[in-house]
């Protein structure tokens, strides 16, 4: 334990409204803490710069999952376990449930929150590619009111994000339009469980008959751990959408993906390996699409 807890203040607002008020009082000083699965690691390592914890764990407003006709609203304080246990998520957003099950062991899934994962802004975070392919929006809240932003535009650089110092992430909104999509996700870690991703991917797409042949539709691919932020592979998608799925297309898409990512070598892996894995996973996804189609 390399921090001195005597140096850390603690504010425990009873409501979200109070929480944003405390935050507004001295926005650069407070460190909102929910499940602590990331912040407490830094606390133990003695690397936290801010010394004021603002407790938002278990705030009722943040820990609810509401299904509306057009979208699912997931409170930012929902835990991975909450996601795994939610029927709508299991049915309509399977990638989110699956990636939640990869995040740490059961104990950490009971504490780690989706909003925390977004705010922590790790490029290796398991669930963020899923949020990206599902076209999630975020509702951010402060004493100045709420604003709604596209998740895809939220992370602007390594650990940088479109979040004002006085704002909290309130809700993650998922458009309910992905039933019937084929989905694919995979995490390549250092071992089978409890590992930080070397590369992770989430993808969805459809195949539709266009007069004579099968065409790819609304293919959406996002990858983690290969750029300073979770990355949507827009160029690769563009080459695939409204095109037939054949080897030449796959080749083109993989080339485009390779140009979009910016992998680095670090403690966990090499840039070369990460690039090759992205290539292989994009292929595996497209192969999965083809295989599902063949099953029909």
């Amino acid at each position: 334990m390399r921090s001195n807890p005597a140096e850390f203040e603690w504010a425990a607002p009873a409501t979200l409204e109070e929480a944003v008020k405390v935050l507004a009082g001295d926005p650069d000083a407070w460190l909102p803490i929910a499940g602590g699965t990331d912040l407490m690691v830094q606390f133990a390592a003695g690397t936290l710069e801010r010394r004021r914890f603002l407790n938002i764990w278990n705030l009722g407003e943040l820990r609810r999952i509401d299904g509306f006709p057009g979208e699912l609203q997931v409170g930012a304080g929902s835990t991975y376990t909450d996601l795994r246990e939610n029927d709508i998520i299991t049915r309509e957003f399977p990638l989110l449930g699956r990636t939640a099950s990869w995040t740490g062991g059961i104990a950490n899934q009971n504490r780690g929150t989706l909003g925390g994962n977004v705010a922590n802004a790790s490029p290796a975070a398991d669930s963020l590619p899923a949020l990206m392919v599902y076209g999630a929006d975020l509702i951010l809240t402060s004493t100045r009111g709420d604003r709604r932003v596209r998740y895809e535009d939220f992370h602007t650089g390594y650990k940088r994000m479109n979040l004002a110092p006085d704002e909290l992430i309130r809700t993650i909104c998922l458009p309910r339009r992905f039933s019937g999509y084929i989905s694919y996700a995979r995490k390549i870690g250092t071992r089978k469980a409890q590992a930080i991703a070397k590369v992770c991917i989430a993808a969805v797409g459809r195949l539709a008959k266009d007069s004579t042949q099968l065409m790819l539709e609304d293919v959406r691919i996002a990858v983690g751990s290969v750029a300073p932020v979770p990355l949507r592979l827009r160029n690769a998608e563009q080459l695939l959408n409204r095109r037939p799925l054949d080897e030449a297309r796959v080749e083109l898409a993989c080339k485009a993906a390779a140009a979009e990512i910016q992998p680095i070598s670090d403690l966990r892996s090499t840039a070369k390996y990460r690039a090759q894995i992205v290539n292989n996973l994009v292929r595996e996804f497209l192969d999965t699409l083809a295989a599902r189609e063949r099953e029909r």
Partner: peptide, 26 residues
Amino acid sequence: MPEEICEALTAAAGPPSAGHSFSGVR
């Protein structure tokens, strides 16, 4: 480590379509 296996296999097979081959829609 997987990185070394990757290195060896891709060197043997040539980049970058090594890995698994796409079987397409029949």
